Structure formats: C-alpha cells, structure tokens
Simulated scan of single mutants.
Amino acid sequence: MRSRVRGGTAAAVLGALLVAGCGDDGYGTASRAGRGADAAAHPVTVTDCKGAEATFRKPPEKIVTSNAAALELLLRLGVGETVIGTGFPPGRGTLPAGLDAQAQQVKVLSKTVIPKEKLLGSGADLYIDTFSAMKMGGGMGDAPTEEEFEAAGIEHIYLKSTACAARRSSPMTDLSAVEDDITALGKVTGTEDQAEKLVRGMRKKVDAVQKAVGSTPERERPTYFFFDYDAGTKQPTALCDKQVGNAVINQAGARNIFADCDGAFKKVGWEDVISRDPEWIQLAVRNRGSEAADEKAFDEARKWLETNPATKGLTAVEKGRFLRIHSERTTIAGVTNADTVEKIAATLHPGKAD
C-alpha cells in the first residue's frame, strides 16, 4: 500500500471567486472564517478505492476538479477560491444563484475529460476525481498514472461514492458513501464544521422520509424507472445497483426496476423495460440552465414515451405517472441527492412523506 504526504506553504489568494456564502438551502451556509480553525486538525489521511493512503499536512491551495459534482461540493464547503480549474463544467444557471456565480469564474480546462498534459501541467496540488478509479476508456481519455501525478506534485483523490462503484461488494442502498465523501473533503480542505452541516442537512431530510416510508415492505413499494432521456432513446440505459441513484430510489421508498443489474449503468433493451412495466417513470434530463429549456426537455421526454410503440403501453405512461427531476440530482453525488429522495417519496407516497 502506498502512502504519500503532501503539504502546502503559501497562503491562499482570495480573488474574484469570493462571493459571500453559498446560500442556505437547508444544508447550512458555507463560511470561510472557520477554515483556519478546522485546518488545525491537519495532518489528515484519506484513502482511495484500493485503500492506498494520502496524507495532507495542510489544506490544499490549488485544486482541480474532474467535473461539476466535485466543484459544487467544494463551493458548498466554502473553498471555491482554491479551485483553479475544472473539467465537465456546470452550465450557466444550473447551480443555485450563489454557487453559480462562483462556478462561472472557475477556469474551464476542458468541457469534457481534462487532457492528460493539461491536467499534469495545471499547477494543482490536488485533483479530485469523480470518475472510475480504473483506467478511463471508451472515449473518456488517457488518465495519468499515479506515478505521473506524483511527479507533477499533484495529489489524486476520488469521490469514492461514484468512482469506486465497480469495487463495491454490495449494492448502494443508502447515501452513507456520499456523506463519507463530503466528510473526507471537509477534512482535507479544513472545513470539517461546514461538512458536518451539509451531512446533517442531508440526514435530516432523508431520516424524515425513512420515518414515513422506510418500513414499507419491498413488495408494496412502487416500481420505478430512471429514464435517462439524454443518454439516448434507441437503447435505454439501466441505472444499476451500485450507482448513487439506486440508493436515492431505495431511500425514497421505491423499487428500482434494474436493482438486479450489477454495476453502475448498463445498456439494455426496451423489452427489458417493458417486461418490468414500471409504475412510475422519472423523466431524467440534464439541467439546461433555464426553467423554459428544462420544461421543453421534460416535455420531449414524455412525448417520446407516449408516442413510441414500445413504451406507450407501459403502466406509468398510460396513467401519466411521471416525475420531472434532473438526472444530476439523482446520479451525481451531492447534497441534492437528499432533495431527490424527498421529492420522489412525496410523489409516490402522498400523505406519508409530503
């Protein structure tokens, strides 16, 4: 097992990213004032998907994030000023106002996967990876080796709730892995108090839902299909048992129709969806950045299901049982997973969880 020790020296420079707070949406308002006190807890050690350790003597000062999920968490922790670049940036208007203002000022290193050379030459001292801990393939680019990260002076850690899905030995049925990611990032960045607030806010919402519907027997739980419209309609994408979305659906008192699928995502056939005949369907479209554009996309997804010969006879389609929820709020690790649990539960179990 490898063990590495990293330390920062210069004080972080506060620039244009400093927007007061992150907005309070039930998770607590981020405050940079408490970072110094939390940073006194260093050194801290975190592990990767294989259990290898990385030790930080001081909070990192120049962070690059692989995508919007890691970036949003850092903004919510109140350390947006340390982020010097990101891949897969959030679209304008896709985050709450306070967060969006900060996110739009972060340098975009790539609209998709950050090229290897650009990442290694970014000047970062930490790269937070949301993707698979295995070699990225299938068009995802050539990931640097751990030796190359080390040579460039970049520590490499993962959001394990998503990156380590393939290594999980059991299905993801609750949000503890997401909470663990937030806690770990709080320790690394010296924002443990804010991380605790975020986790506490999530638990408050999910615990309330669990109290209302958690004891519902499996056979009485409505069946649920996550329809990833933006992933393509020719061949549907199944949301499988080791994906965060499976935990969201389970915690909301529903049954993911593809909970028996091992892994994170898998291409299936429409005959597979038809044979499982879901009672509810989530119209999962990606956030377009405006309410009008979002509604247009949701409408298109619904119309496709209602007019396609293979799907128009599904129970959920015939009864108009649709939920309009952005796909990111379900499948990307973050505090809004708890909000999705609330929304699904309130829709599927009216009178109990609303």
Rank of each mutant, 00 (worst) to 15 (best):
M1I: 15
R4N: 09
G7D: 11
A10W: 03
A11S: 13
V19F: 07
A20L: 11
D24H: 01
G28L: 00
G36Q: 11
A37C: 13
A41D: 09
H42Q: 12
P43L: 12
V44W: 07
T47V: 14
D48A: 07
C49Q: 10
G51Q: 04
E53G: 10
A54I: 15
P60A: 13
P60H: 10
P60Q: 12
I63P: 00
V64P: 02
A68P: 02
V79Y: 06
T82Q: 06
V83H: 05
D100L: 00
Q102A: 13
V106K: 02
V108C: 01
V108H: 06
V108K: 04
S110D: 09
K111C: 03
L119C: 06
G123Q: 07
L126M: 14
Y127E: 07
Y127V: 12
A133V: 13
A133R: 05
A143S: 13
F149L: 06
H156D: 00
L159C: 02
C164D: 08
S169P: 11
L175W: 07
V178R: 06
K205Y: 08
G214E: 02
T223I: 14
D230S: 06
A231H: 05
A238D: 02
D241E: 14
Q243M: 08
Q243S: 05
V244F: 03
A247P: 02
V248R: 01
Q251T: 15
G253W: 01
A259T: 11
D260A: 05
C261E: 08
D262Q: 12
V268W: 08
E271P: 01
V273C: 11
P278R: 02
E279A: 08
E279V: 15
I281R: 00
R286I: 15
G289E: 00
E291G: 07
A292L: 13
K303V: 15
L305I: 13
E306T: 12
E306N: 05
E318H: 08
F322G: 03
R329N: 03
T330D: 01
I332T: 06
A333L: 08
N337G: 10
D339G: 02
I344R: 10
